[in-house]
Design a protein around this nucleic acid. Structure first.
Lengths: 214, 214
DNA sequence: GACTCTCGTTACCGCAAGTAACAACGTTCT
DNA sequence: AGAACGTTGTTACTTGCGGTAACGAGAGTC
């Protein structure tokens, strides 16, 4: 079996691809997601058409970058999720892992979540991509106000209300987005499920047979 | 006092602005957020520079559009939030209002939340803006798997686990995003607050004095 | 009648995505 | 050896969009 022939090419192609991705990573993390293909090519020491041969179009390149980082984050989260501990501990470990990741590398996070913002320079380049944030932020703050006004949360109520406000809005948003795409159930059912979650059913539910549950 | 002089102009300018916004709305909802300024101008029956005189740049126009829709949605939500009822009922009403809104007008929703996707045509135009969704979706599905494996949720567990998976991920995401921007507390504190929320503290907390709480 | 101010136009610049056509080099087949 | 070929790279181009400058035409004002 001719192991070398095609394999060599594939290996070299893969290596090249990895090199290009790393260069792209550097540029994107430095210049923000608005980085031009020319800039990325220059950083990699080559010219545009090669990038296009490897990744098809700019979307392909960005997708490849996103997959890389997403995979890395997912691995870390799976580890936290699979650690041997009680449910609450796991939940906290997972939350902490996620938050630590975005805290440790905000650049990567911003690229994955808020593309088209421009990392350096003023807020000059508006462009699309940051309209969602304002809406969710406004909703979160609004809800925080209502919570703090109406629910007795003891000390630190101001902070807690804001955390919850943004958290609940995020929950609603993500679940709604997923639901809108897949339509896995009726609206009423979704509302019930989410309200149940908020009502502590996660804390109250028993473990499945065979070890500590999530 | 010369009431008419300047007021007339302002009124006509405002009316023009509203007309332009409505035209832009039509185009954006039809062609997706990738709609060009030329197309919007054409729909409004005029040419580009006028748009620029009114909105500064494309970001300004989009911002104006976003604010319009955001305000409308916020009003509806405030109404649900302020209705006289018990806390759980309010929560459900608010969730339902939000979901009904995005269900009734997915185009608007997609514009606000997932700009740069292209509404019609295949998934050809990748462009930036939809990298976040894959990550959050993957996280949500992953979490759903773990939940269903490990937590006993009774009947409909598959559906419930997915709703919760996406919901919890969304909560984590939104809270993390807000926290990363404002740094209102330590990471540990945020983790605690979110875990508390998930652990049913919202259900358990007492009302504040003076009426039914959120 | 000249002045100016707003609304509108055409024609342009710059820049980035994406592509076509071509040049050099190692492989392989005859 | 030498010809055909695929890979790797280039330069130079097209297309399209955001944004702007410069100009034109009415309507009110001194």
């Amino acid at each position: 079996m001719e192991t070398t022939g095609r394999t060599d090419q594939e290996r070299s192609a893969d290596r090249r691809r990895r090199e290009l991705l790393e260069a792209a990573d550097r540029v994107v993390l430095r210049d923000g997601p608005g980085a031009s293909m020319n800039a990325i090519a220059a950083e990699a020491g080559i010219t545009k058409p090669i990038l296009y041969r490897h990744f098809g179009d700019k979307g392909g390149l960005y997708k490849a970058l996103a997959v890389r980082h997403t995979d890395a984050l997912l691995d870390a989260l799976r580890a936290a999720l699979d650690a041997p501990a009680e449910r609450r501990e796991r939940v906290e470990a997972t939350l902490d892992t996620y938050l630590a990741a975005i805290e440790a590398n905000p650049q990567v996070y911003r690229f994955l979540m808020h593309p088209a913002e421009g990392t350096s320079g003023g807020e000059a380049g508006f462009d699309v991509g940051l309209h969602s944030a304002p809406l969710l932020r406004r909703l979160g703050e609004e809800l925080a106000k209502v919570i703090e006004e109406r629910v007795d949360l003891g000390p630190e109520s101001a902070l807690l209300a804001r955390v919850w406000g943004h958290g609940i809005v995020g929950m609603m948003h993500a679940a709604g987005d997923w639901w809108l795409g897949e339509r896995p159930c009726s609206r009423a059912q979704l509302v019930q499920s989410l309200a149940d979650l908020l009502w502590g059913r996660l804390a109250a539910a028993g473990d499945r047979v065979g070890g500590p549950g999530f």
